[in-house]
Structure formats: structure tokens, C-alpha cells
């Protein structure tokens, strides 16, 4: 056990400067590559049942999943339930996940995407849900500022709901989940060109809506 710990310390001592170097390096693409490699390692450990690794992935992706689901559903309480289900499903399924088939972020967001589809199917309703009157999205000590932000978010959700289903998907993944075009394409099973076109047309439509609202 002692020998094992000492080896682990040795490995950490070697890795720490490399991680620090990667974090401070100014070329973001190189950092991205480094981070992808770190994440791959974390995912590998999570697949083998390492709970700490799964906790790290949870911290990394929780807010993005919640935002994506919230933008799709427009309802805080439903978004919370669905986000919870996404992580429960991910924990149940991660043992069978194969990194070579699909990177982790698209895999996780595909679970979220399927959950959203199931939700609408079960509810038997259109993907348009009225916003609650008493939603609390942004906690703030300044009620006026919080109210202003909530109005802005409400306007965003209302406008996104008016897009076509495919545009809505892409906009939610790009701006809510903050995924790249390549990742969004993998979630949706579409090619990158299609996603770029949906993104362009979606933003164009939103621009028109915002101008009309003005």
C-alpha cells in the first residue's frame, strides 16, 4: 500500500507542472487539446467505476445540462427533474460507454436530448410551455436587477420557442449548453454543415424577433 501511494505521489509530482503549464499557456486551442486529454482520462476512470472521476464530470457539465434543458422546456421545476434524470441515467450507463464511438460531452447531451424528447412525448404536448409567473432563475440581493434578468431570460425562452424544432435544438445546444458545432452535430446525428446552417438561420430568425419586439 505504501509503495503504491509513493508511486502515485511520484506520478502526481510529474503531472502537476504539466497541468499548470497547460493551464497558463496562452494558446487556447493547445489548452483545449490538453484539457480534452485530461478529460479523457477522467472519463476512463469514471467508466471503471471511479466515483471521484464521475463527481468531476458532474461538476463540469451540470450547469450546461441544466441550461440546455431549461431553454428547451422553459420551466424551472421540470428542468430540475429532467436534469436529475439525465445524471442518474448517465451514472447507470457510464459503465457501458465507449469513448471511441462518441466523445463524452455529445454522449451526455444525447442523453439529455433523448430525455427532452421523451418528456414531450409523455406529456403529449407541443414543445411550448408557458413560463411560470413566479420563476426564480437568478438569485439576487437586488430584486430590480433580478427581475430585469428574469425578463430577459423569459424573452429569450419565448423567442427560442418560436424557432423551428431543428433550429431550437441547435440554438439550445450552442448557447445553452455551450457545445461546439462539432459536438452539437454529434448529439443530433447531423453533419456539421447542417448544424452551421441551422445555427445561422436560427440566429437570423432571433434577430428579426428581437427587432420586432423593439
Amino acid at each position: 500500500m505504501r509503495r503504491c501511494l509513493s508511486q502515485l505521489n511520484h506520478v502526481l509530482a510529474i503531472l502537476t507542472p504539466a497541468i499548470n503549464l497547460l493551464s497558463s499557456f496562452s494558446f487556447s486551442s493547445i489548452i483545449d487539446i490538453g484539457m480534452m486529454s485530461i478529460e479523457k482520462d477522467i472519463v476512463s476512470r469514471a467508466i471503471k467505476g471511479d466515483g471521484e472521476a464521475f463527481a468531476q464530470l458532474y461538476e463540469r457539465y451540470f450547469d450546461g445540462i441544466y441550461r440546455y434543458v431549461y431553454v428547451r422546456l422553459g420551466d424551472q421545476s421540470e428542468a430540475e427533474d429532467l436534469t436529475q434524470e439525465v445524471f442518474v441515467k448517465a451514472l447507470e450507463a457510464i459503465g457501458h460507454y465507449k469513448q471511441r464511438n462518441l466523445p463524452f460531452a455529445p454522449w451526455l447531451f444525447r442523453i439529455a436530448h433523448n430525455q427532452v424528447i421523451d418528456y414531450f412525448r409523455k406529456q403529449g404536448k407541443m414543445e411550448k410551455v408557458p413560463l411560470e409567473d413566479d420563476i426564480t432563475l437568478v438569485s439576487s440581493s437586488n430584486p430590480a436587477l433580478a427581475a430585469e434578468r428574469e425578463l430577459e431570460i423569459e424573452e429569450l425562452i419565448n423567442n427560442v420557442e418560436k424557432l423551428s424544432p431543428a433550429q431550437r435544438e441547435v440554438i439550445s445546444l450552442r448557447f445553452g449548453a455551450e457545445l461546439s458545432v462539432a459536438e452539437a452535430a454529434k448529439v443530433l446525428g447531423k453533419n456539421e454543415g447542417t448544424v452551421k446552417a441551422l445555427q445561422y438561420n436560427g440566429v437570423m430568425a432571433l434577430k428579426r424577433m428581437l427587432l420586432t419586439d423593439k
Partner: peptide, 30 residues
């Protein structure tokens, strides 16, 4: 328009209490 979208989306934040509750549930499952 995109900058406005990004700004508004980033203001959507989960309730910290909810995040902790889900975390605890996952720990129990693990």
C-alpha cells in the same frame, strides 16, 4: 444578437440547493 443570446443564456443558473441534492443522490447511488 449572438452576444445577447450568450449573455442571457449564461444568466440561467441552477439553484445551488438543487445541485447539492442531486449530487447527494448520485453519491448514494454510487
Amino acid at each position: 444578437t449572438s452576444a445577447a443570446l450568450a449573455q442571457r443564456s449564461s444568466a440561467i443558473q441552477p439553484d445551488p440547493g438543487f445541485k447539492v441534492r442531486v449530487h447527494s443522490q448520485l453519491q448514494a447511488m454510487l
